[in-house]
Simulated assay, not measured.
Amino acid sequence: MSEYSKSGVNLDKLKQYHNFIANYLGSSRLEVGIGHYAGVIKFDDKYLAMHVDGVGTKTLLALKTGIIEPTGVDCIAMNVNDIVCVGARPIAIVDYLALEGEMDDVIQKVMKGLKAGAEEAEVNIIGGETAIMPGVIKGYDLSCSAIGIADALKTGEDVRPGDVVLGLASNGVHSNGYSLIRKLIDEGKLRLDDWAEELMKPTKIYVKSVLSVKDKIKAVAHITGGSFSKLRRITKFGISLKMPEPLDIFKAIESAGVSHEEMYKVFNMGVGMVIFVDKKLKDDVIDTLAKRNDVVYELGVVTEGNGIKISTYKNSIVYL
């Protein structure tokens, strides 16, 4: 049994839920079906992409540490990063904030974070909902819905063996795996006082980076819950990756009792966004991103077959 399952999150069961929902609600009218990073419909000569996501249980650590503002940025990031994964430019956000009770400080800091994230992603927050729900909410819960627009989609249909896989560096843990992290903290295996600042860093917003190379790439994958298994949304071909050495926070989580293999099945391990590109355009894409001061890793290649092989910084192999 994985440590993540012990914390109350069974990724296999969650995948079953996702598959059931996609099959039950799916429509032939969708340009990109349920289960990709965003749902897409055709509207006149444009594609409209929509996505909804939240911050998750990171909000509980926000209350413990008093570092609340980054969760507003997280909420924007988790949505706009997924919108650009289908090749769309995010244009508008609505937020949903549910509170356990009156929480003036939370309201002010969350709104400040939402505003900062929206400005970074160049999207407009056009409305939302705030609710007080005692007995239902513990602390606060924060989610957003986003809409984006595109002239053409990037869904990975043209990804082929030989294509290069690039990675954009993450800020840290971002906004997934926090049920497991909280379990380690509650058990005294990971000291919150030592890692509060690192754990509460906001999810990096990749919108400008991805859009700067959109016309030169084949596909994009946001690495969130389920980690690199997310690459299955892009291609069924094989993928071989050599991962960089991760930030210290990931080493600390592993040392607290998570197996090396599970780390690469739960966390982003320092890579928050993955880009698929034809090898002939690889250098051009890297140069463009480097000029933006993005940290870019050449992770590996698309291969024949259908497995994901990850070579870690410890020279171990993880198969997904």
Rank of each mutant, 00 (worst) to 15 (best):
I107G: 00
P90V: 09
E157Y: 10
S145C: 14
A169L: 09
A98L: 11
P90G: 09
I91M: 10
G156T: 07
V73G: 02
I83D: 01
A92M: 13
N124E: 14
Q108R: 12
I147W: 06
T155D: 06
M78L: 13
Q108C: 07
E119L: 08
I147M: 15
R160H: 12
P134K: 14
A146V: 07
Q108N: 13
L99I: 09
S170G: 09
G172T: 03
V106Y: 00
L142D: 01
A98E: 13
Y140D: 02
L142N: 03
V80D: 04
K154W: 04
M78R: 09
I91C: 09
M111V: 04
A116C: 03
D82F: 05
V164G: 02
G148M: 05
A118H: 01
A77P: 02
S145A: 15
G148S: 06
A121R: 01
V123T: 07
V165L: 11
A152M: 13
I147D: 03
L114C: 07
I137S: 05
V164C: 12
I147Y: 08
L99M: 13
V123S: 01
V159H: 05
G156R: 05
T155V: 15
K112H: 08
G113M: 02
Y140A: 02
M78C: 14
V136A: 15
I107P: 00
A98H: 07
E119M: 06
G72W: 00
C85W: 06
G162T: 09
T130V: 15
N81G: 08
L142G: 02
C85S: 15
D104M: 11
G172L: 07
A118G: 11
V84P: 00
V123A: 02
V165T: 11
V80Q: 04
I132N: 03
A131N: 11
D163Y: 11
L168F: 12
G113K: 00
P134A: 15
D141L: 14
E119S: 10
N81Y: 02
A116E: 05
V164Q: 07
G113T: 01
D105P: 00
V159T: 10
G172P: 02
L168S: 05
C85T: 09
A88E: 04
A131R: 15
N171D: 06
E157L: 14
P90M: 05
K154A: 12
D163H: 12
G117W: 00
D95N: 12
N171S: 10
A146N: 04
P161H: 12
D163P: 04
G72P: 01
L166A: 09
E129V: 13
D74S: 07
D95E: 13
M103K: 05
V136R: 13
K115T: 12
S145G: 14
D151M: 09
